[in-house]
């Protein structure tokens, strides 16, 4: 990792008003959690449904998408990435620095609020909050790696990433059960299933398989992004 790259990426990602916009989304999740706690009371099934549908299925992928592509996408888009690439820093190291910022950002803005929302709604009972927190943490890191790779590969990374998150994990996953085996969401939910003591969530993937696949995806995507950055060609404006 390179300290300067990390610092500049961090400033580009969270400088100015952008941090507040991202924070607004996290606050929205917490506000809904507080609202549900006040209106519904403590109901562990509600907690699981809410965190599963809003946090793990929507908030974490969206944050991973925005932050993961945001650490390098705009630079490639406006061409200023050449100044970074012309420095004597190896490309895999640049990617590693970018990945560190993206993963930290997603964890801070998406996974931590998920854990806090779980605590607000269910307390520490049944380790539900912990289960979802860990799932969100792992999913955040995996999404950051995948979408960072996507941003290096294509200029339309946000759109294709969204297609994966909405169509593959959402639409196709609800009709074709097989599609769920290859979904970050289900892999991370298998962690929740293993950690939470109550039987509230079920995942289609076994824990061992999910763990291996997650590790392969995170390491593989980061490595391949470094390789792709080595041969990056700057296409003109379409």
């Amino acid at each position: 990792m390179n300290g300067t790259v990390v610092r500049l990426t961090y400033r580009a990602l969270l400088g100015g008003r952008r941090a507040w916009l991202l924070l607004a989304m996290s606050v929205l999740l917490l506000a809904m959690a507080v609202l549900l706690r006040l209106t519904v009371g403590v109901d562990h099934q509600v907690t699981a449904d809410f965190l599963g549908a809003v946090a793990v299925a929507a908030l974490v992928p969206l944050f991973g998408l925005i932050v993961g592509t945001g650490v390098i996408g705009p630079e490639i888009d406006d061409g200023s990435v050449v100044y970074l690439l012309s420095k004597p820093i190896s490309r895999p190291r640049i990617i590693l620095s970018k990945f560190a910022v993206a993963a930290t950002g997603t964890v801070l803005f998406a996974a931590v609020p998920t854990f806090v929302a779980g605590l607000v709604m269910s307390g520490t009972a049944g380790r539900i909050a912990l289960g979802f927190g860990v799932a969100a943490l792992v999913a955040s890191i995996a999404y950051s790696a995948i979408f960072l790779l996507l941003a290096v590969v294509t200029r339309h990374a946000v759109v294709y990433g969204l297609a994966y998150a909405l169509i593959w994990e959402g639409l196709l996953g609800s009709f074709v059960p097989g599609a769920r085996t290859l979904s970050v969401q289900q892999w991370s939910l298998s962690l929740t299933e293993a950690i939470a003591t109550r039987d509230l969530v079920s995942s289609d993937v076994r824990l061992a398989v999910a763990g291996v696949l997650l590790a392969v995806v995170i390491v593989g995507a980061t490595w391949y992004a470094g390789q792709r950055l080595r041969v990056l060609s700057l296409a003109g404006e379409e």
């Binding site: 989304m25 809904m32 549908a53 929507a58 969206l62 998150a165």
Partner: peptide
Amino acid sequence: ALSFAAVSA
């Protein structure tokens, strides 16, 4: 996407 997911849930 976020408003739809949140509202539906």
